[in-house]
Design a binder for these strands. Structure first.
Lengths: 355, 355
DNA sequence: AGTTAGCACTCAAAGCGAAAGAGTGCTAAA
DNA sequence: TTTAGCACTCTTTCGCTTTGAGTGCTAACT
């Protein structure tokens, strides 16, 4: 963690990063000397930059061009130099405001937060919903729709509900729905897939009597519901914004990146590998997927009761306004976190209903 | 519908379209004379092409280039010349096979079908789920999760179910859940938003007695559930494939298109405007959105019991292999349609369950 | 020792003009 | 009505030079 650079080298590195991020073109010694460090001559800067290049923090596209930060350079910048920036009070307020408008469905809040992240930073934003755990269903409900259709509702231990339509090839009565529900709640509810053994199933069938075929139809849907990995989804917002950055005018790179985003190539893994509660920055080749080796991912997880329930982040080129992006993502995630955690307290205060 | 072109002009138009689609470069008279119409001299073709240009079917990028089909040219091709092509039996089989693997959730089938459409045509595919109509809820169910959480299940007239978690600031009992459900079913079910008048609400509140605050919390979710346009979603697959076509190397156009796809700019409208049960082809400026004026959309609706329940399609440049794409989309949609419509019959046959 | 001025050097980017090549439109003959 | 011939147009490409930014090095300066 100790990078051991002289004060001045750090200053120059920072200057290069910030100038390059802003201007998009390799930055030369003269520019820095004039605009950001008036006490030094270009020659001095040149010497220092040559050192920084030897150390791996800077790169040169070609001999007669200025310098560009390397990935290591960005890393250093992110770790040591960009930490201070914070969103203003007003901006934080605004975010909370925009978020508050949404119903308190976590999905919606996450989506809105990521949309905000995208539009505020002008990068592509992602919202991640972790895999929802349907591996154990704690309660069933069956609704009668018409004589050949029932609706099966499954409630998981973590509070996720999932519904499936049961189209039947035979007629049923509303009472069958209730019967099916009670059977499912008696024999299936509270069990994992493994625990639904043949004897259990046979008992349940006996219980259903002549309507065993109803149970069969329901079980088929239940199996598929329990097996499928709900969630683990990534919602993407604003892919088109990538095109405003010259680094993605290379069709090949852009294509790779788009593919990576669409296939979630390693993005989920990358995110789950981020440790700590702070905003995570994954620069260039630090990414799992080769297709993302020219991009940077900035994410922050969102926790509820200490458990990760989602994440929001942005994807952009390595040449990115890190200070701003990190602060934005941080503030938004913070905002969402507060919102979903405070919901309880809000309702607890005797505001509505006068008992 | 009568386009009134001489046999030979049609032949030449077709030749131009097919050669251009294949090669990607303006096609000249010589090429056609040699490869596709050996009985005519280039000069003859030239004359005819000049006519076709005057009629608006062909265009010339510049004086010394070959001809390129205009949108009208493509339209003619699609309407009159590309109709015959059909997928082979083997291919259709393969599609059905791939689809059959999926559970019979419509969403999943649609998604898989569109993924197939994309990979088979190498264009970007979309799957459309029509707006699910929650404007009238015909039945409620309330599940008890824990002392401060209930799960509200709403069932629409069209068989769509939606669930919402009710986080409460006070404790409830399982009996409260049942009580709430019956109240909702008595007073709210079967009514549209307009019909839920103040008197109705007051009756319902009286019914709930001391637990009126529970009703209030539920109503909030119900309102938001009824107002929000569920569905109407577009799932996109393979945006990255767009990049393999030179027409989208223009960053501006690509950006517009990506934005249009993401915002569903008019795509839903466009699709709902397609009449007839056949595959619809929307070429260039026929699209609602200006951002899609360089693209073509090929879609087919999917019906169940005569009602549109979705659509699949592909988006690509106007220079597109129409015959193949149309046949592919057609076959896939057909496949999906058969699958979801035959479900009933499958279950009707006494195969499983022996009563 | 650290800093600075000066200068030759390198290399991408931009501009220019000639040459090549493809395809056309038109005219006149078959 | 079709075809051959031919002059014409316009893009594309290539090579060439010019321009300019920025460097690295050396030698002088503090």
């Amino acid at each position: 963690m100790e990078y051991d650079l002289s004060k001045r080298k750090m200053q120059i590195l920072r200057a290069v990063v910030e100038a390059y991020v802003k201007g998009g073109e390799p930055v030369g010694s003269k520019y820095i000397a004039q605009n950001m460090m008036p006490n030094c001559s270009p020659a001095t800067i040149r010497n220092e930059m040559a050192d920084l290049e030897a150390l791996g923090y800077l790169e040169q596209p070609h001999t007669s061009a200025g310098r560009v930060p390397s990935e290591l350079g960005y890393r250093f910048y992110v770790d040591c130099l960009a930490g201070e920036y914070k969103k203003t009070k007003a901006e934080t307020e605004m975010m909370s405001e925009r978020l508050r408008g949404k119903q308190h469905e976590l999905d919606k809040i996450l989506a809105e937060a990521s949309r905000l992240a995208g539009s505020m930073t002008n990068y592509t934003a992602i919202a991640v919903k972790p895999r929802s755990d349907m591996s154990k269903i704690i309660r069933f409900e069956v609704m009668y729709f018409d004589s050949r259709t029932l609706v099966l509702v499954m409630l998981s231990g973590s509070g996720n509900a999932k519904t499936r339509n049961l189209r039947l090839g035979f007629d049923v009565l509303p009472t069958d729905a209730a019967h099916l529900a009670s059977t499912l709640n008696t024999y299936i509810a509270g069990r994992t897939l493994d625990e639904i053994t043949l004897p259990v199933m046979m008992q349940a069938e006996t219980e259903m009597g002549s309507e065993a075929r109803l149970l069969a139809a329901a079980m088929k849907e239940i199996y598929s519901g329990m097996e499928e990995q709900g969630g683990g989804e990534i919602k993407v917002d604003g892919v088109d914004r990538l095109l405003s950055y010259p680094e993605f005018s290379d069709v090949g790179k852009l294509r790779g990146l788009l593919g990576a985003i669409e296939n979630k190539d390693g993005i989920l893994d990358t995110i789950s590998n981020i440790d700590g509660d702070e905003v995570g920055v994954v620069i260039g080749r630090e990414n799992m997927s080769d297709n993302m080796s020219d991009s940077t991912l900035v994410v922050k997880k969102i926790k509820k009761d200490g458990k990760v329930v989602g994440a929001i982040g942005v994807i952009g080129p390595c040449r990115m306004d890190y200070a701003n992006v990190m602060a934005t993502v941080d503030a938004l995630a913070e905002s969402v976190g507060k919102m979903i955690n405070s919901e309880l307290k809000m309702l607890e205060s005797p505001k509505k209903g006068n008992d």
